[in-house]
Design a protein around this nucleic acid. Sequence first.
DNA 1: AATATATGGTTACAATTGTAACTAAATTGG
DNA 2: CCAATTTAGTTACAATTGTAACCATATATT
Lengths: 150, 150
Amino acid sequence: MTKAPDLLVLEQFLPFRISRLSESISLKFAQYYKREYGMTRPEWRALAALGQLGTLTSTQICQHSNMHKTKVSRAVQALSERGWLKRKRDDTDRRIEYLQLTPTGKKRYSKLVGLALQFQAELQSSMSSSELSTVNKALSILEKLEIDAD
Amino acid sequence: MTKAPDLLVLEQFLPFRISRLSESISLKFAQYYKREYGMTRPEWRALAALGQLGTLTSTQICQHSNMHKTKVSRAVQALSERGWLKRKRDDTDRRIEYLQLTPTGKKRYSKLVGLALQFQAELQSSMSSSELSTVNKALSILEKLEIDAD
DNA sequence: AATATATGGTTACAATTGTAACTAAATTGG
DNA sequence: CCAATTTAGTTACAATTGTAACCATATATT
């Protein structure tokens, strides 16, 4: 009569550990752009993707950031209303819309990049360089798992 | 005239990487308990904390799981309505309520622990043992950072 | 002891989110 | 060429969430 293990030590359970970490880190960083610009997280993520990658469609932002398409749709709308991005229809396939930051959007982006790098520097200042390298290695390993929501 | 870096590579930005990972892992695992019991994430987390640690107050669940107190309050209420936990007031300090799983709650917990361990095993099966050790080391490093929402 | 402050927990309300249904355009298959 | 299916993106609606206000009780200050 074998007894199944009936206890889960949360402190050792990967999904728990990651989501607890993610929530505290994201919440902390959100204070930066929220205080500065009253932006939401999806808005910041869309801005960051466009700032880094140039021209993207909403679908591409979804894939890149792992965000639900309605979230992206709303974020893009908000950024567009602020005048931070402009939309441009594809001439051949008129379902597709290319998104691109405006000069104003680029300015905001640069400002926020400053905050982001500052935040990251603060995080890293509490780690030795070998710790940092372990962290980066681990993230790469986990990213390779390619977890899909089916 | 120094030029500030005005680009952020998201793929190298810690908060982005962690939250993208966390969201896909949590979403994937959520399918397990959602399909099985129609539970929400806060409910699963509260159940898991009580199953592992025995008797806890709502505040302790908040601290342990890094969840907002209204989330916990609602999750506890839902679990209580299902008859999975019972509440007991402290005799000395009547603000405090001790929460504990009922026999039914414990049964559900055991079932879910099985699913959790299976899920974790699936995740780990794609990693070598040295990769796994790197991941665990990294999580410990990040957990030591003690990020608080101020 | 009386008032002020703090703590555990709940709740009302507004904002954010996800699901599903939708529009519009493009592609496929007969 | 036309109906059926797929894809990009939006939107209505319901569920989930966070903020702030709130009870009730306990502790601290005078």
